[in-house]
Write a protein that binds this DNA or RNA. Structure first.
Lengths: 176, 176
DNA sequence: TACATTTTGTTGACGGCTCAACAAGATACA
DNA sequence: TGTATCTTGTTGAGCCGTCAACAAAATGTA
């Protein structure tokens, strides 16, 4: 965009050139890095990164079984996104839905043996990719800086309450 | 995932705890920031961030008209993604396709008056959002660090050739 | 008990992205 | 000229994500 905007333009604090460059570089990094990681995981392990995230959460959990909303909160996903995702993963034998005796509305999501094999096969390759494209290119200071930046931003955004009011505690929006 | 993997696990360089934290923080930042910016632009201006990116490219270009592949290269998108996107944008009157006399296969993509109004209306609000959620939370050093990190990673990834071989010069893959 | 409200989770419609296939014009070259 | 190849761009199938609507069970309250 150029800076000769009509209307309220005079009051807009446009990005400074170095901010503009940082912002576009960040957008590029994101787009390229996520595309690359997704494609490599798909080719090497037959999983999407979304599949992988779900499997990792389950495999890290005691008994490898979780309630749907528990999983949604852990992932920061909307429940309907997760439900669709679980349907697809169930069809491929990565997870199973089992009834919950304490709450008959509910379902437990259970990691299958195939799901465990898939995540354990994908994890080492994925770590290698993340190292290759990200950490190997950064100095230790840059790694720490990235972490600090990301935490500052997610703190501002409400640490998971943006757009997933669905699965967040119904407190007042702490974001403004 | 835990680190007691079967098989080749002994040779895998798992992420160190501080790398793990930085990585997950980065993933969270991305997911939340892009979701928030997308939602705000949709609510305030009726555009997706994809619409906005296309409109910005066009509006920055002399005559506000570009060939499809030129646009695809500028955005780092696959041509088919762009083609679908343009079809939707054309239906909403944001852009028009016009014939190219020099190359009768080709099409010029032209920004309409409505498209220009849309991008000029959206830009100030979008800048405010980007400031609010990102730059206002970062120190000047962090802004520079973010830019440097992003450039290091995109350089490693081949600066736009990842997954869009479609629209890239057909050089050998410089990524491995 | 009866009834409203909240919580849990699924579904369908629709926009968006990727991939492979395709059409048609441009280009190279014999 | 003829023809093989490359380039430009679109299309359709299918997966993915969001939104709104819904069903059913749990919970609160009279």
């Amino acid at each position: 965009m150029n800076e000769n905007q009509a209307g309220a333009a005079t009051t807009v604090r446009w990005l400074e050139p170095h901010e503009q460059r940082a912002w576009r570089a960040y957008l590029d990094m994101n787009a390229q890095l996520s595309a690359r990681l997704n494609r490599e995981m798909q080719e090497e392990s037959g999983l999407s990164t979304a599949d992988f995230s779900v499997l990792v959460q389950l495999s890290e959990h005691v008994d490898a079984r979780m309630r749907v909303l528990e999983l949604a909160r852990a992932l920061g996903w909307e429940k309907s996104r997760l439900s669709h995702q679980l349907t697809r993963m169930q069809q491929r034998g990565l997870i199973e839905r089992s009834n919950c005796s304490e709450d008959r509305r509910g379902a437990f999501i259970v990691l299958t043996a195939g799901g465990r094999d898939a995540v354990e096969g994908a994890a080492p390759r994925h770590v290698e990719s993340v190292r290759r494209y990200l950490f190997d290119e950064l100095t230790p200071d840059q790694v720490d800086a990235l972490g600090a930046i990301a935490r500052a931003v997610t703190d501002r955004l409400g640490a998971g309450c943006a757009g997933i009011a669905d699965v967040c505690a119904d407190t007042a929006d702490p974001c403004d």
